[in-house]
Amino acid sequence: MSDDNIPAPTVWPTLRADDARALITFLVDAFGFVEVAAHGEGAIIHHAELAWPEGGGIMLGSHRDDGSVWTLRPGTFGCYVVTADPDGLFARAKAAGAEIRQDMHDTDYGSRGFAARDPEGNLWSFGTYRGEPRTV
C-alpha cells in the first residue's frame, strides 16, 4: 500500500509513559511504528506522534502529575492494532524482547494475532481482524 492510499488518522489513542523516549524507541523497534514528531525538553516528551504504517497512529508523552486532563497513569493503556502480517510482526516483537502475553493464535471470528506488553506495562494486541463492515 502506498502512502498516498493511507488516510490521515482521525482517532488518536493516547498514553503516558514514565520514560517516553525509551517507549518510543521500543514501539519503533519492536512493533514497527514510525516516529513522526516528538516535542519536549531534555528527557521530557510533551507530545509525540507515532504513525502505524498500515494507517492510523498514536500520541504519547511523559507522565506528569500536573492536574491536567491528560494525567493518565503509565502502563494502563490497551490498544488493538490491525496488521496484514501478524506472523512477521510477532517474530519482530519477540526478537526485540517484547513480553508476549498471548502467543500467535487464530480466533473463531477469523482473526490471526497475538498480544504483548511494552516496557511500561501497556497491552498491545495485533491481529488481522478489521472489524465488522459498517452499515451506516
Results as ranks from 00 to 15, higher is better:
S111P: 04
P74V: 12
W70Q: 14
T83S: 13
Y129A: 07
A48N: 09
D18P: 00
R134Q: 12
G55R: 08
F77G: 04
A37F: 06
T128W: 03
V81I: 15
D18G: 13
H105F: 11
G127Q: 07
F26V: 06
D87K: 08
F114P: 02
A30I: 00
G56C: 11
I45P: 02
W12P: 01
T83A: 06
L89P: 01
R101L: 05
L15F: 08
A22T: 00
T14S: 15
L72I: 14
V82M: 01
Y109V: 04
Q102W: 03
H39L: 14
R117Y: 00
D29C: 10
A30L: 02
G121V: 13
T10H: 01
V81P: 00
T107C: 01
P9H: 07
I58M: 04
A30R: 00
G61W: 10
D108Q: 08
D87H: 11
S68A: 14
F114R: 01
G131L: 08
G131W: 03
I44K: 13
G113W: 05
L123Q: 11
S62Q: 05
V34N: 08
S68H: 05
V34L: 14
Y129K: 02
A98C: 06
G110Y: 00
G57T: 10
G56W: 02
F90I: 08
R16F: 10
A93M: 09
V28K: 06
L72T: 07
R101C: 03
T76Y: 02
P119S: 05
T107G: 03
D29S: 11
Q102D: 09
T71N: 12
A91R: 14
A51Q: 09
L60E: 09
E41C: 09
P7H: 08
F114S: 01
S125H: 12
P74L: 05
M104V: 15
A115M: 12
A93L: 07
R130A: 13
S111V: 09
F90C: 08
I6W: 12
M104R: 13
L123T: 12
I100H: 02
H47I: 08
D29Q: 13
V11H: 06
C79A: 14
F77N: 04
A84R: 12
G131P: 02
A37E: 15
I24A: 00
E49Y: 03
L27A: 09
F114G: 03
S68D: 10
M104Y: 05
R101N: 03
V28L: 01
H63N: 11
H47Y: 11
L123R: 11
G97L: 12
A20P: 04
R73W: 01
R64Q: 14
T128M: 02
F26G: 00
T83E: 03
C79I: 15
H39S: 10
G56S: 11
T128L: 02
G67P: 08
C79K: 04
T25W: 02
Y109Q: 05
G88K: 08
